[in-house]
Design a protein around this nucleic acid. Structure first.
Length: 591
RNA sequence: CGGGGUGUGGCGCAGGGGGAGCGCGCAUGGUUUGGGACCAUGAGGUCGGAGGUUCAAAUCCUCUCACCCCGACCA
């Protein structure tokens, strides 16, 4: 492809709507164009990258015996009613009506459709296991799309669904898919960490996310510095050893005029926050619940939501709290009845805490469980923190940020049961197949790859997903020799199957070099009168600072050889963005 | 949904009751060509939309739409 013909020109200035690196670079290179909030056109360069990622995915999945198919984006709403998931998706589900007033929706995911499809085609245990996948556009009416392709309302996704005879089969497929995912991301040249994840309202016992590690990531990951434990903060557990263990002292009321927050209380009484008991009130599907937790910790709403099995969870309004006869700012579980009390285990392990006195301007000292209060549930509902102990090996937890590019779930029989899918097992009995589902956000992966691999000049593509492999710069085009040599090399390399961008524009060297860097093509070749004096071509890798000359006569041969070597990434391949935390990734990629 | 912000040519921005401007980009001609050259000439905008105030509105008022950021939210 000639650069002069590429649809979409590079921009010198950053469009003001973007403040996210990948978003800025995708706009500056005109790889994407925004049509509405969270809705983008992929221009030719981006489309090539998406295709490459898709091909890597296909190759890896087909090796497992998975079969590709294509389900509709437009789905009958009725099937979402049957599984009840129109409720859990809520407003994120795009809905519409056809001319006969029949309700339809745009698929945010395809568990319903695939399960129905399998219903019509699954008869015998001999048909299992089954792995089906598609590459599809998904629609989710996100409350707030952001970051360009990182959180869009329309995006491309690979979703695979597994069906198995039994739990062992599901486990085997799940492990197989973990390996496939690790292969896929590695082949794309992005470093990911696999972490334990919340499976949310979809249920199921096992769920893992694959995170592209980058400081700009939306998700926080807690990982152990010693063992392989890594989890999304939504799910992570930290060991909360008691820090003030003492003999219980007698309960004592203290005056705390105007004190309402834990910060103020700790400062006023000159005690650490960890010596206080925090009371937080939530409305869980309209039930007000009372959560108590050690003052230095925060309630993890995901854990709480899973515990209460509610569909809506929010902080209670002050008026709702008052209606329950509680004093916001001075509330405690001491002598409180008529409300469900959930205690984080940090509270029940601790001694002599300062808690509210359930009347304004007073607190209680030396509150101890179970002497002074009772609770309905004791469990872990705290947000794990850096510095806490790893739940597996008790070493210290660290924190890092990532972008979720893959998510896998063991669904079990949730969908097959609801939609009545069964098969005849070996003994001739009706049996429910066990499902797993596995997703990769392809367009998000494209953006995440840029987040992970760029510098101040632009994108740094890894070879396997770069839109082109080579950027051929011809400098001094009024020199006929330059034109002849460049055209010849361009033709030769194309004949060899090299994907090449030929910058044939009458532009200054600076413009061409800057565009080459911005576009991030791995190898830049320069043909110029200067290099031609020594019958040479200049080679420069995007990841390296220095260029070097090779003889013109060997150019095609050398270039093809070097490209082949770099096509399949070896672990030691230099890439500035991939170097950092490299060891961690390897440790994080759990067996 | 709460809070904040922005809408003026393809991109970045200035202007703030009476001529719609600047830089980049684009076109044409010329001089240039190893890290975003220069000169000249030009094309391109219902100032997000609707209503109002006024002799006169990009500018003031009202409503509205879109987009961005923070939060809530996000299987």
């Amino acid at each position: 492809m000639r650069v002069s013909h590429i649809f979409g020109k590079t921009l010198r200035e950053i469009p003001s709507e973007a403040d996210n690196i990948s978003h800025q670079l995708l706009l500056r290179t005109t790889m994407i164009h925004q049509e509405a909030a969270g809705v983008y056109t992929y221009l030719p360069l981006a489309w090539r990258v998406l295709h490459k990622i898709e091909q890597i995915i296909r190759k890896e999945l087909d090796t497992l015996g998975a079969q590709e198919l294509m389900m509709p984006a437009l789905q009958p709403f009725e099937v979402w009613e049957r599984t009840g998931r129109y409720l859990s998706f809520g407003k994120s589900l795009f809905t519409l009506k056809d001319r006969r007033d029949r309700k339809l929706c745009l698929g945010p995911t395809h568990e319903e459709i695939i399960t129905e499809l399998v219903h019509y085609n699954l008869k015998s245990y001999r048909d299992l296991p089954l792995l089906l996948y598609q590459l599809q556009i998904k629609f989710r009416d996100e409350p707030r799309p952001r970051g360009g392709l990182l959180r869009a309302r329309e995006f491309t996704m690979m979703d695979l669904y597994s069906f198995d005879r039994d739990a062992e089969g599901l486990d085997a497929n799940y492990h197989q898919m973990i390996q496939a995912y690790q292969n896929i991301f590695e082949r794309c040249g992005v470093s990911t960490m696999m972490v334990e994840a919340d499976s949310g309202a979809i249920g199921g016992k096992d769920s893992h996310e694959f995170m592209v590690i980058t400081a700009s990531g939306e998700d926080e990951i807690l990982y152990c510095s010693c063992c392989s434990y890594a989890a999304n903060v939504e799910r992570a557990q930290g060991i909360k050893s008691p820090i003030h263990h003492q003999e219980p002292l007698p309960l004592e009321e203290v005056s705390t005029p105007g004190i309402k927050t834990i910060e103020d209380l700790a400062a006023y009484l000159q005690i650490p926050k960890s010596q206080t008991l925090k009371a937080v009130f939530y409305s869980a599907d309209d039930e007000i619940v009372f959560v108590v937790i050690r003052g230095d910790l925060e309630v993890n709403e995901v854990k709480l939501k899973n515990l209460l099995k509610c569909s809506e969870l929010r902080l209670a309004e002050d008026t709702e709290v008052e209606k329950k006869g509680l004093v916001a700012g001075s509330a405690s579980p001491v002598k409180i009845t008529g409300i469900r009390i959930i205690a984080d285990d940090s509270v029940t392990q601790e001694t002599n805490l300062v808690a509210g006195a359930n009347k304004p301007d007073y607190h209680l000292k030396n509150v101890n469980y179970p002497r002074d209060f009772q609770v309905d549930i004791i469990t872990d509902v705290a947000t794990a923190k850096v510095g806490q102990g790893c739940p597996r090996c008790h070493s210290e937890l660290n924190s890092i940020r990532g972008i979720e590019v893959g998510h896998i779930f063991k669904l079990g029989t949730i969908f097959t049961e609801k939609l009545g899918v069964s098969f005849l097992d070996q003994e001739g009995r009706q049996s429910l197949p066990l499902m797993g589902c596995y997703g990769i956000g392809i367009s998000r992966l494209l953006a995440a790859a840029i987040e992970q691999s760029h510098d101040e000049k632009g994108i740094i593509w890894t070879m396997p997903i770069s839109p082109y492999q080579v950027y051929l710069c011809a400098l001094g085009l009024e020199d006929n020799k330059v034109v002849t040599v460049a055209e010849e090399l361009y033709a030769c390399l194309m004949k060899e199957g090299v994907e090449i961008l030929f910058d044939d524009r009458f532009e200054s060297a600076g413009v061409k070099f800057n565009d080459a860097d911005l576009l991030g093509i791995p190898l830049r070749l320069t043909i110029s009168p200067r290099a031609l004096k020594s019958q040479s071509v200049e080679l420069k890798w995007r990841t390296e600072k220095e260029s070097h000359l090779i003889p013109l006569s060997e150019a095609t041969q050398v270039i093809v050889r070097d490209l082949t070597q770099r096509q399949d990434l070896s672990p030691g391949r230099p890439s500035p963005a991939r170097d950092y935390e490299q060891e961690r990734f390897q440790r994080g990629q759990v067996q």
